[in-house]
Design a protein around this nucleic acid. Structure first.
Length: 227
DNA sequence: TTTCGCCATCCTATATCGAC
DNA sequence: GTCGATATAGGATGGCGAAA
């Protein structure tokens, strides 16, 4: 297990290496839902292209999405990778849920008790537990240390949390181990989310990680084991 | 040239648990 | 006993690079 209170210092080193991370252009809770559903398994750049096209050509509100033709939505989802037709259906489903359950104002979910807000967000397609936590974190509603797979891998390799049989169990393990390491504020944990993700994408890759160029390898349990 | 494994991460189905 | 919440396992998806 890595020593306590060390993670914040490692994040400083990651920021020196990767720079200050830019947040996604999606701002509201509904936009963040659209951000997850407009593209699948594509680069951040390609996802941003698809999202900005959706905003420009269709709109960013549930009503605008619902009013759009399938052709107009397809023009956007083809920019976001595989199964564009399927994602058209997902976008309209997102709009339907937002309109029928939240009166078109998904931001109202953020004021609810956190467990209830998480459940509400998980009703949207493409939003599981990590996705729901990320939206609540990014909107400043709850300071979850939300992680995606790259960030999760970095934390586990550093020694926070243990690799479990399921993704969800590994997620909870790493989150529980690392949360006490960071200030319980949304800005601090948004920063951690972005830096851990970036590091996992470009350096601490799933296979063949670039340990030789990693600025925090001396603190890494995985590196010590593999070396 | 063909085959195979990896990538990212949510979804679905099923099992288990606790409250009432 | 029923219901809802939570946990778990396995499936799914196209592109790409490495190996045969």
């Amino acid at each position: 297990m890595a020593p306590r209170k060390k993670l914040a210092r490692l994040l400083d080193r990651l920021e020196q290496r990767h720079g200050v991370q830019r947040p996604p252009p999606a701002k509201s809770a509904f936009e963040l839902v659209l951000w997850e559903n407009v593209a699948y398994l594509v680069s951040d750049e390609q996802r941003e292209t698809a999202f900005l096209a959706l905003v420009k050509q269709v709109g960013r509100t549930p009503a605008a999405i619902r009013a759009a033709s399938r052709e107009a939505l397809l023009d956007v989802t083809v920019l976001g990778g595989m199964h564009p037709e399927r994602r058209v259906s997902k976008l309209t489903e997102c709009a339907d849920i937002a309109l029928e359950h939240h009166g078109g104002k998904l931001e109202s979910v953020l004021a609810r008790p956190t467990p209830e807000a998480r459940r509400a967000l998980k009703r949207f397609p493409g939003i599981g537990e990590p996705g729901a936590q990320k939206i609540l974190l990014f909107r400043g509603a709850h300071p979850y240390l939300a992680l995606e797979s790259n960030g999760l891998r970095v934390l586990v390799r550093l020694g926070w949390g243990e690799e479990a049989k399921s993704y969800a169990a590994t997620y909870r393990s790493a989150q529980a181990a690392a949360e006490p390491e960071l200030a319980a504020t949304c800005p601090a944990r948004v920063r951690a989310h972005h830096l851990l993700r970036k590091h996992g994408q470009v350096t601490c890759k799933h296979s063949a990680p670039h340990c030789d160029e990693c600025p925090i390898s001396t603190a890494c349990a995985y590196y010590a084991r593999e070396d």
